Amino acid sequence: MKIYEIIAFNREILDRFERIGIRPDDHKHLPLYNDYRAMKARREKMTYIVAVLAERYAVSERKVYNIIAHLEKDCTERAVIPPPNSWHTQQ
C-alpha cells in the first residue's frame, strides 16, 4: 500500500483532527502526558512535575508546559460535525 492510499483512505479523520487542532505528532507525547497525570494524581507540585518530565523526556520546561496545555484542550462539536464541503456532499 502506498502512502497516498493510506492518506486518501483516512482523509476524513485527518481533516477532523486538523480542524480541532490535533497535530500529526501529538501521539508521541502520550507517555509524557500519562506521567504528568500520574504525578498530578499524587498531588506533586506543578513546578516539580515539569522539571522531572523535562529531564526525563529531554525537552525544555516550556515544551512540557505547552504539551500539557495542548493535550488538555477540550474537543468541541467541530470534531464530530462534518464540514459543509465534505466529500459526502460532493458525491
Rank of each mutant, 00 (worst) to 15 (best):
65 Y>R: 06
40 K>Y: 01
68 I>S: 07
46 M>G: 12
29 H>I: 00
47 T>G: 03
31 P>A: 09
41 A>T: 11
42 R>Q: 13
61 E>L: 05
75 C>W: 04
5 E>M: 10
30 L>C: 10
4 Y>N: 14
33 Y>E: 02
82 P>I: 14
82 P>L: 12
58 A>W: 04
25 D>K: 11
57 Y>F: 02
42 R>M: 12
49 I>G: 11
10 N>Y: 09
35 D>E: 08
63 K>Q: 00
35 D>F: 00
25 D>V: 13
48 Y>T: 13
19 R>C: 09
17 F>V: 03
71 L>T: 02
21 G>T: 02
23 R>W: 12
63 K>R: 13
89 T>V: 07
12 E>L: 07
62 R>H: 04
84 P>G: 10
63 K>N: 05
70 H>I: 01
62 R>P: 00
1 M>I: 15
33 Y>L: 07
41 A>Y: 05
85 N>Y: 07
39 M>S: 10
80 V>G: 11
38 A>F: 04
77 E>Q: 15
89 T>K: 13
38 A>G: 04
18 E>S: 14
31 P>D: 02
84 P>R: 03
87 W>D: 14
63 K>M: 06
40 K>A: 03
63 K>A: 06
2 K>Q: 15
75 C>Y: 06
36 Y>Q: 02
78 R>G: 14
71 L>A: 12
81 I>C: 05
79 A>T: 10
31 P>K: 01
74 D>S: 12
82 P>N: 08
45 K>A: 06
89 T>I: 08
28 K>V: 07
21 G>V: 05
7 I>A: 01
78 R>E: 15
73 K>I: 00
61 E>N: 09
87 W>L: 15
90 Q>H: 05
38 A>N: 13
65 Y>W: 02
76 T>I: 01
55 E>K: 04
54 A>T: 04
80 V>N: 07
34 N>A: 09
29 H>D: 03
42 R>W: 06
47 T>S: 11
47 T>C: 09
80 V>K: 11
7 I>Y: 11
82 P>Y: 11
48 Y>K: 12
59 V>H: 00
60 S>N: 06
35 D>K: 10
46 M>A: 10
58 A>H: 01
7 I>Q: 06
59 V>R: 00
43 R>D: 11
3 I>R: 08
63 K>L: 03
26 D>R: 05
59 V>K: 00
66 N>W: 11
51 A>D: 14
38 A>S: 12
34 N>V: 04
84 P>T: 04
63 K>F: 00
80 V>H: 03
81 I>S: 10
25 D>G: 14
7 I>V: 13
10 N>D: 07
45 K>E: 05
8 A>V: 05
64 V>W: 00
39 M>A: 15
65 Y>A: 02
13 I>Q: 06
45 K>Y: 13
74 D>E: 09
80 V>C: 06
31 P>N: 07
48 Y>M: 07
78 R>Y: 00
76 T>P: 06
85 N>T: 14
36 Y>M: 09
62 R>D: 05
